[in-house]
Design a protein around this nucleic acid. Structure first.
Lengths: 247, 247
DNA sequence: CGTTTGGTTGAAATGTGTCAAACTTTGTGG
DNA sequence: CCACAAAGTTTGACACATTTCAACCAAACG
């Protein structure tokens, strides 16, 4: 896999084909990167740091999180391949969250200097990166709604729906199933429940024949029922280019 | 108050004095705006809409929110004078939240076309707007943490701390007190509690001599104790220019 | 094969929600 | 300026979702 193919995951994420010009796309592919394989549980950037580079997930999964002073941890977002989970550091120097890998996989690093240069030369690329951060914001809002207002199985189900759709959007879901390298503990930290309670909610979902979840894989057995229970409406993911850009 | 003075609240918000050049600042002041007084409870932009203009809060306060299909409402953010609560609509066309005024006050509207033009001519202004949306994102993350992990009085206290600091940052707090045009019902929707429970938590805070809250005003009686109880660390607000920009 | 990590279960404790009523403040029109 | 209505706040008793604690089980792994 040469450098160009590597960055095609990023291009896909930026919806380069529909939203960017040919020159902009080439500028993306020309970005100098450094590839690296990271094990799971590695901190890519920590709260309080001032990173000098940004990261692209190639095959790696990651999550960002933050803890309260008495040690309670909240998972703020999950990140799937193709994403740049820390683009924000380009304009907000000090990290206010920690970014950690979820499973062993490959990432690419780009220096902030190179990113700034390419944004300067290709303003619509800057817009594309800006848009990515805005979509992350929209997802964060839905998480707040999920954690604040939905209860029990519905809350857990919503998270699973989002995961499945987002993983599917980068082409990594196959006929109703996808990877899910998330422990119940991390899942609990993401929805604001206790691991014990998450376990019970999962069994409720399993018992209702909605999902299968084991060995790091998630299978959706009844999408209509699951997404209804979850009150899941994918519009907040802004996956449709027309929805995100249309006049 | 002429147009230039009007937009000085925005310039302050963008930290124009320290982060923008003289030309950039003048470009801000030259933006064509339409001023308007809005009563409280007015929707400035609704979920699903594609606004053609953005809004600046002059003296008005506002909040953004979203509801679950069974009608449970989550307040996602409060907005204080000087902010542009819907800049995001410049790059994310379809609103995924509703923006509503909190109290009667004045707002200014700027056409997206004018904003895009000024961003094109002054790229560092575009960066400044981008940074604003990133800070909103950082605040949203802290809200997720608050709603997901903090309990009882601590959760409510955190929200009050944030409000006080943000209002103070635009010069609207006076010796330990500020406006707080938020009903307990809206407060409840913001922290994910029931109005009844919020009421009890507030009385706990009052009983401990930490705050006074009545008649749309908030008085901080014991900031050290309140911020400690709330586990409040203002770094996530990115108020310090060095923190947000420093190398 | 033993050890570690993650998952599952049950019983009891508790924080928060629900419901319903009374009270207080704010605003408005006579 | 009073009287009334509307909106917001406060209270109590009870129900219930979720947490806590503690133990056991299963799978992954060296």
């Amino acid at each position: 896999m040469d450098s160009q193919n590597v960055l095609s995951v990023l291009a896909r994420k930026l919806r380069a084909d529909t939203l960017l010009s040919r020159e902009d796309q080439e500028a993306v592919f020309a970005l100098p990167i450094r590839r690296q394989t990271l094990e799971d549980g590695v901190d890519i950037a920590r709260e309080g740091e001032r990173p000098g580079r940004a990261c692209i997930l190639l095959t790696a999964y990651a999550f960002s999180h933050k803890t309260t002073s008495d040690g309670r941890r909240q998972v703020l977002a999950f990140h799937v391949p193709g994403e740049m989970p820390d683009v924000q550091s380009l304009n907000l120097k000090v990290m206010d969250e920690t970014l950690t890998t979820l499973a062993t996989g490959e990432v690419a690093f780009i220096d902030h200097g190179d990113l700034r240069a390419v944004c300067h030369r290709h303003p619509s690329l800057a817009d594309a990166f800006w848009r990515e951060t805005l979509i992350e914001g929209a997802i964060q809002r839905e998480w707040t709604l999920n954690v604040g207002q939905r209860e029990g199985a519905s809350r857990v189900a919503h998270l699973l729906c989002e995961w499945f759709v987002r993983v599917g959007a980068v082409g990594l879901a196959t006929n109703g199933g996808c990877r899910f390298p998330v422990t119940q503990n991390e899942l609990a930290n993401a929805v604001g429940f206790t691991p014990v309670h998450v376990n019970r909610m999962l069994q409720e979902l399993r018992g209702a024949g909605l999902i299968r979840l084991a060995g790091g894989r998630l299978e959706i057995l009844d999408w209509p029922a699951l997404s209804t229970l979850a009150d899941f409406d994918p519009r907040y993911l802004h996956l449709d280019p027309d929805e995100t850009l249309g006049a």
